[in-house]
Write a protein that binds this DNA or RNA. Structure first.
Lengths: 133, 133
DNA sequence: CACTAAATTTGTAATGATTACAATTTTATA
DNA sequence: TATAAAATTGTAATCATTACAAATTTAGTG
C-alpha cells in the first residue's frame, strides 16, 4: 500500500501528518480513538496537535478513505478499512472485533422506496476467549 | 398499556417522574434525546431536573425496559420499544425511522463460537419523502 | 533565490453532553 | 409521629469535540 499515492488519488495533499495518521490507521485495525492515535504518534511527530488529528480524520472521512463509528455513546472510533463489515464488542473484555457480514443483502421491510447509502451493524456479547476462560 | 404495573413488574418503583418519563418514551416513538424529553415534560412536572431524566433512563436501561443508541456520535437517543428493529436516518431531512428486520437471523462469519447478546443496526440514506420532492 | 499568498498545523478557549456528588425532598416503616 | 431509606434535585466537574485565530509550512511567481 503506497500511502502517499492513496492520499493523492483521493484529492488529499500528502503532508507528513496526513501520511503518518493514515498509515497508523491502516496498520492498526483495532479502531483507535483520537486520543490513542494522538498518543501513539506524538513520539514520531513531536509537534503534533490533537486538533490536527481531528481535522485530518474529518478530511479522510469527507474524502471517503476512512469511516467512523461510535459504540455505546463513547468516543468516536476510526477505521481505514472501507469494505463493509460489522463490529463486535465483547461486554466482558471490551475488545472490538471485525466481522464479515455473510448475509450481505439484508432485506428491510417498508424500505422499498428508501435509498440506503450506508449500513452500520454492531453486535455485543461475549467473545470466544472470554467464554472459555 | 398500564405503565405503573409495567414499571413495578420490572422492579422499578413507580414514582411520578418515572411514570411520566416512561409514558412519554412509550408514546413518542421518535427516539427523543434527554433534552427533548426534559423540555417536553418540565411543563407537566415543574420541579423536574435533567439529572432525573438521566438517572431514570439509566434505571430503565438497567432493568431492560428501555434501550439507547447513538447515531453519528451525537446525543444518546432512547427507545421504549424493545422488539428488535433497525433504525434509518435520512441524510436529507434528518428524520429517524424504525425499520423491521426481515432477515432476522443474520449470519456472521467467524462468530460461531461467540455469544451474541445484542444486535444493533442502523442505516443511512434518503427517505422516500425526500426522494420524491 | 527571495516574496507573497494559500494551505496546513497548532494551541487555546468555548461548547455541549454526561456524570459526580452532596443537599433536599419524598416515601416507607416502625 | 419519628426515623431511615430512597428518590429527586441543582451545581460543579469531566471529557470529547469544535471554533477560531495565530503561527508555520508549502507552493507559486518574478
Amino acid at each position: 500500500m503506497d500511502f502517499i499515492s492513496h492520499l493523492s488519488s483521493n484529492n488529499i495533499k500528502p503532508s507528513v501528518q496526513r501520511i503518518k495518521i493514515f498509515e497508523y490507521l491502516y496498520k492498526n485495525t483495532n479502531h483507535p480513538t483520537v486520543d490513542i492515535i494522538y498518543k501513539d504518534l506524538v513520539g514520531d511527530i513531536p509537534t503534533l496537535s490533537k486538533t490536527t488529528v481531528y481535522n485530518t480524520l474529518k478530511l479522510f472521512i469527507d474524502n471517503g478513505i476512512t469511516s467512523t463509528f461510535t459504540i455505546d455513546g463513547n468516543e468516536a472510533r476510526y477505521d481505514a478499512i472501507m469494505e463493509e463489515h460489522a463490529h463486535f464488542k465483547c461486554n466482558d473484555c471490551g475488545q472490538l472485533y471485525d466481522v464479515e457480514i455473510e448475509a450481505l443483502k439484508l432485506k428491510f421491510s417498508k424500505l422499498n422506496d428508501f435509498q440506503i447509502d450506508n449500513t452500520n451493524i454492531y453486535l455485543k456479547g461475549i467473545c470466544n476467549k472470554c467464554l472459555t476462560k
